[in-house]
Computed example of a mutant assay.
Amino acid sequence: MTHSLPLVVGISGASGIAYGVRLLEVLRRLGIPSHLVMSRTAEITLAYETTLKVAEVRALADTWHRVDDLTAAPSSGSFRTRGMVVAPCSARTLGAIATASGDNLLTRAADVTLKERRRLVLMVRETPLHLGHIRAMAAVTEMGAVVAPPMPAFYSKPRSLADVVDHGVGRVLDLFDIDAGIVSRWREGDDDATVEA
C-alpha cells in the first residue's frame, strides 16, 4: 500500500540515532515516503553509535536534504506532508524549535509543520532536565507539538535493544495513526499482564 503524503524525518545529534534509522526502515517497509534531514552533529553521532555510513542512512529515505538547504521542499508550507518526527531530538534542537529560530532546514521544517498545524513529534533525548528544558518542552507543546521521549516499556519484557527501539518507533507512529506492527501492546483485562506483538 502506497501512501502519497510523506513524513519528514529529522535526525539531530542527540544520542539515540537508532530511533531515526529504524523509523526510516519502518516507513520504507510500510510504503510511506520519507524526507530526511540530518544535522551535521547527527552525522558525527552516527559514527559513534553505529557502523553505518551517512550515505547508507540517506539511502533509507525516499528523499534527503542538506541541513543547510533552506530552499528544500520541507521548508515551505505549500509542500504537503503528513507531519514530522525528530528522532532523536537534542536539547539544542528542542530549544531552537521552541523559539521558532528556523536557522537550518531541520528546525525550519519543524517550524513549518507547526505553522501548518500538522503533527510534530519530538523524541527528546536528554536527562536530567533543568528548568530551561522543561520550559522549552512546555513551549513546543503549547505550539502544538507532541513531546515523546523514547521510554522503554518493561511490561513487554524486551529481549534486545532492537525491541526497545521498535517499541519507541512504533509508539511514535501510533501518533500518526500508523500501526507498524512492531509494538508490544498491553492486553486489557489480562491478570498476568501479557502483551501481544
Rank of each mutant, 00 (worst) to 15 (best):
V121H: 02
M84S: 13
V57T: 05
R22E: 13
L105R: 04
M151S: 09
S34E: 14
L120C: 08
P149E: 03
D179C: 07
G102E: 09
A98P: 01
D190W: 03
T113C: 15
K53M: 15
T41D: 13
A109Q: 09
A55E: 15
L5S: 14
V121M: 04
R117Q: 13
G95W: 00
P88D: 08
S75W: 04
V146E: 12
S160R: 06
L105T: 05
E126Y: 00
A180Y: 04
R29Q: 12
Y19F: 14
G77H: 09
V121I: 11
G77L: 10
W64L: 05
L131I: 12
R82K: 12
G144I: 06
E126S: 02
G77C: 11
R80T: 14
V26S: 04
K115D: 14
K53C: 12
R185H: 05
W186S: 01
I182E: 06
A47N: 09
T113S: 14
E126C: 01
I32R: 12
A18M: 11
A42F: 11
V140A: 01
V140R: 00
V124M: 01
L46F: 12
R66N: 08
A197T: 03
E25N: 07
A180L: 07
P152N: 04
T99H: 13
A109C: 12
D111H: 11
T50L: 13
P152S: 04
G170K: 02
E142R: 15
I44Q: 15
A55I: 06
G144L: 08
T50K: 10
S15W: 06
V54R: 14
T107E: 13
L46C: 11
L175C: 02
R92G: 08
R187A: 06
G83N: 07
R66Q: 07
D111T: 14
G31C: 13
L27N: 06
G31A: 13
R40F: 07
L70R: 08
V169C: 07
P128A: 09
G170F: 04
Y48L: 15
V140S: 01
V86W: 00
H167P: 01
D69S: 07
R135N: 14
P149W: 03
A91F: 01
G132A: 13
A162H: 11
R80G: 08
D174W: 01
G20T: 06
T113M: 13
V112M: 14
R82S: 14
V86K: 03
V8Q: 08
T45P: 09
D166K: 02
D179L: 06
A109P: 09
R58V: 03
T99F: 05
I17H: 03
G83E: 07
S15R: 05
L114C: 13
S90M: 04
V26N: 04
A109S: 15
T194G: 05
T127Y: 09
V37A: 13
S156T: 11
A96I: 02
S90V: 02
W186R: 07
H133L: 03
T71V: 09
M84A: 15
A162L: 09
M123V: 08
T45D: 11
A193G: 04
L161H: 10
T127F: 14
S184L: 00
M38S: 12
H167D: 15
E56H: 05
W186E: 10
V164K: 02
V57W: 05
T81F: 10
L23C: 08
W64N: 14
S75Q: 07
R58L: 03
T63E: 09
C89G: 05
